[in-house]
């Protein structure tokens, strides 16, 4: 299993990805420290509605969310790349000569994606803590950070769910076919978004009010907690079932080592 994981780590250019994460973390820290109350002092304050607000906080605050979505965008690419590399290099034929079962091969894909998501989620939490902890402590900042943390959980649970759906397709149908389906899906989604932007009711976006969202969150705190607690468990169970199904089908698949 160790060897299979390392093979995939190299295939997805893991070292380069780790370097990108380190650079993002360093940028986050430096930006946070440079644009902090301790460094800028009064220069960063503006008065809005008779309230003195430290403006840089409201820009830097969204960095964890932005960076989380950025690295999350890499995830489907790495998912595909880990399978495509094996297909293109005909590595599976070589694996047939090693004491590696088809089940172990499938398990290595699931384990790698699970580890990747765990590391990315942990890093997004560390980013949120650093940005929030060094901000001027107000209720609004706290609410924004908590919302970002909650959305990070939702994002990574969604990515795990997507992996549970996509990995079986990649392993059973092949990377090229799945890539075509994905391109079609995202093109359709993009067309729908463009259509809505041109002809839809955009006033909905301007009517979004942060305070109303936070009030709603407080009214439905139990439901949000139940979702936040239950959905990761549900998706983890789904991920495991996806692995069992994929492994069972993959073991029956012929000519996996020739492709």
């Amino acid at each position: 299993m160790k060897g299979l994981l390392y093979k995939d780590f190299v295939a997805i250019r893991g070292k380069r990805f780790c370097a990108i994460l380190l650079v993002l973390t360093a940028v986050m820290f430096l930006t946070r420290i440079i644009f902090s109350d301790f460094v800028l002092g009064n220069a960063g304050y503006v008065t809005i509605d008779e309230e003195r607000v430290f403006l840089p906080d409201y820009i830097v605050l969204y960095f964890p969310a932005f960076f989380s979505f950025l690295v999350a965008g890499f995830f489907p690419k790495y998912l595909m790349e880990s399978v495509r590399c094996d297909e293109q290099s005909r590595r599976r034929g070589y694996l047939a000569s090693l004491p590696v079962s088809k089940r172990e091969y499938v398990a290595s894909k699931y384990v790698l994606m699970g580890i990747l998501l765990y590391v990315l989620y942990s890093l997004s939490m560390v980013w949120s803590i650093c940005v929030g902890g060094l901000a001027v402590q107000t209720d609004r900042i706290r609410d924004v950070i908590h919302l970002i943390e909650y959305m990070s959980l939702v994002l990574f649970v969604f990515l795990l769910f997507a992996a549970a759906i996509e990995l079986p397709l990649l392993l059973l149908l092949g990377a090229e076919k799945v890539h075509m389906v994905e391109v079609g899906f995202f093109l359709t989604l993009g067309l729908l978004v463009t259509w809505y932007a041109l002809f839809g009711d955009l006033d909905i976006i301007s009517r979004l009010d942060f305070d109303r969202i936070m009030d709603a969150a407080e009214r439905h705190s139990f439901e949000l907690m139940a979702i936040g607690t239950g959905s990761p468990i549900l998706v983890l169970v789904l991920y495991y079932l996806s692995f069992r199904l994929t492994a069972a089908l993959y073991e029956r698949k012929e000519d996996v080592y020739g492709s």
Partner: peptide, 22 residues
């Protein structure tokens, strides 16, 4: 807190413990 939330404590702690174990 909502009373129902209290009964979610064990499950919430286990979930957050596993996911946010870093």
């Amino acid at each position: 807190m909502d009373k129902r939330t209290v009964f979610l404590f064990p499950l919430a702690a286990i979930t957050s413990g596993v996911i946010a174990s870093f």
